[in-house]
Design a protein around this nucleic acid. Sequence first.
DNA 1: GAGTTTGAAACT
DNA 2: CAGTTTCAAACTC
Length: 812
Amino acid sequence: MDVVSPELNSLLPDEIMDTEAIEDIPHSQPDGAAVQPEPGDDTSVPMETDTPMASENLSLCSDASSSTQHTQALTTSTATDSTFSISSASQLPISISSTSSPLLTLKPSMVTSTATTKTTDSVTGTTVSTSGLQKLTAPFTISAANHQIILNKVASAQATEAAKSAGTQPQVIKQEGQKLLVTAIGKSGQPIVLQLPHTGSKPGVSQTAGDPKSQAPQFKVVTIGGRSELKQVVGSAGNQVTTLQAQQLKAVQIAKKTPTSSAAPIKFIITKTVNSKGLSPQTSVSPVIAGRVLTQNSPGMPPRTITISEPHNTSIQSLPGKKIAISPLKTPSKVTVVSVASPTSNASQKSVALPVNVALGQQILTVQQSTSASPVKVAASQATTQNIKPVQSVAVGGVGGSQFKTIIPLATQPNVQQIQVPGSRFHYVRLVTATTASSTGQPSGPSTSSIQTAKPMVVSTGAVRMSVPIVQAQTIKQVAPKPLTSAAVVTTTQTQQRLIMPATPLPQIQPNFTNLPPGTVLAPAPGGGNVGYAVVPAQYVTQLQQSPFVTLASSSNFPASTGIQTQARLPLNGLSTAEATSRPRKPCNCTKSQCLKLYCDCFANGEFCNNCNCNNCFNNLEHETERLKAIKTCLDRNPEAFKPKIGKGKEGESDRRHSKGCNCKRSGCLKNYCECYEAKIMCSSICKCVGCKNFEESPERKTLMHLADAAEVRVQQQTAAKTKLSSQISDLLMRTTPVISSGGGRLPYTFVTKEVLEATCECLLEQAKKAEQTHQPQAETERLILEEFGHCLMRIISSAGKAKADCASINC
DNA sequence: GAGTTTGAAACT
DNA sequence: CAGTTTCAAACTC
């Protein structure tokens, strides 16, 4: 299914979906994911691309169209309202929950545990049947363009069941140091290596499926996509993967894209390996950068694992754990956060709950990670501030160019896990660990079966853009007669922040949008398509990053909204939330537009006015109605009104150019009146400016640039000088303070005691007397006195140095 | 800080 | 689509 419709893509800002290095994702066959109720429906996700692509999504969704079993599993398991959980079998390790009303629960049911899973090779479009492989009923696919994140369950369901029945604790097959090699789906010779932390090979080791030599022992190779069988790359003792185990590794493509381009899709695959002995399933995910495995764990750190368990019951429980929220990145890198590691427990079992809170207003996508001793618990979308662990940063690189997934070494920085998807259309996704223990997700309620649809969310912050296709949970009861093809676009940049959430047509979607934060604007997509937008105040995004409560609760009242609104206005350490979290934005000074027209930069950027100087401002939560109307009006007038004006140019042109071009008449395009010049880009062929001097060879432009550079240099020099001076002063203070107390190494001036001063003064007076006696002119007298003063100083310094030397010798 | 200039946005 | 008006930022003094 197409997660992103061309229409939506065309509507989205280019900066959100910078398409560079992005290629179309071949459309994959529906694989069993139960997220899409209607196979035929295109899940349109607005993505900002110059060329509409269907594949730019990081979608946590699965296409259930082909799998009835999956659908059933979801139906039975989605008892929780607004919970999007992905879990397999008994112990539910991964759950994605969304506190918003739409419920998406991906939970494998026992019924499907032994079912044959069809895996679709998204690249070739072939369907691979993997018998004996447990089906991960909760398709968890994060796909950006060609990239997909696949949760693979490799374990045997029967084995797990047997182990459970036997009362034995599930054990983890994978040992520390083991590496899990996963070949790119549909791509041969392009394995994706998932390294288990620890004793594994050194980071940066590139592994190729077909190259046994390069493969260090303890590697497990999983071929995903066209090949259902597991290749055993390494045959070594200890953690070595046995053939049997290797056979048990199955790749299940949970979600899929239906890419049309020839570009090789990159899929991020989380495999779960369970041995036939009933060992507890455990999924290990390690970072891989361009085919190189990076060890993120510090020595001694237990391997970070993600355990995918299959709950027997449908109830969803919340495990205290780490919660990771997808939030806009501040870093320029493109980051997609996917997995969470919990290095803490030494217990044989480690379950990681990955609840993803995706509200329909879901500015936040939270992945909860918990280390639970109880393997049987089903993760709910509950997060606790405690137990927040450092998470791994995973970067997924393009399969085609950068054949391997790029995984950024996960710093020990807590709460953040990143997955970088170069070449992906979702550019930047960051999961931020929520900080509160409050349950954001609604525990499994008696809610009825829900229809989940892929919901791409694009978030960009400054240079960072985040595109997170999110499986949108949506209850059928409440809303759409048909599956929604909605997408959430969240953009937050330093110059602009906005959250645009494509949604189904307003009449259909609005009931669910009660959960959207106030200020969210619903607008139908131009052309009367099935998809519209929900523009959510950017403050929410910011706040979501900070507050765990931000998760949009499933409750229809959207309780969090009030709090959010309050937070947005509350100063934080003297700064507003927005200021504290992100960017310095110039306050507007609107007087007549009520800040509801594009004249207002705040409004144009999709932001609420905050700390502005505007008068009669309606760009706030108090005037939701007006604001929504204004946004709709703007979109009606220009569907691209909220798109960044500076986007990627055509082939061969500058990377950045004004989307419409300027129309300057008198400024020569060398003043900030000119939007091109203001954006520090040169005018292009589409500009209609008169007397333009903002071109490459323009001497005026060069002069200005030089002046600007010179000014910048001066500022930098001044800053450096200040810094240096400050450093010297502080260093001086640091050195003198302890010395005085110790008595050794004192600086010369510390020897200027009262006695010394008196002696010096006597010397000076004596010199003055001499000059007076010899009838020296005043100037000469002053000179002699100053000279004497200099001599005194020298003697003081000399004495000080001698004293220091003596002291040092004594100490020795 | 007030006034002017400028060009995008809005309007006709 | 073109011309005009409105608007707020950029700029000047």
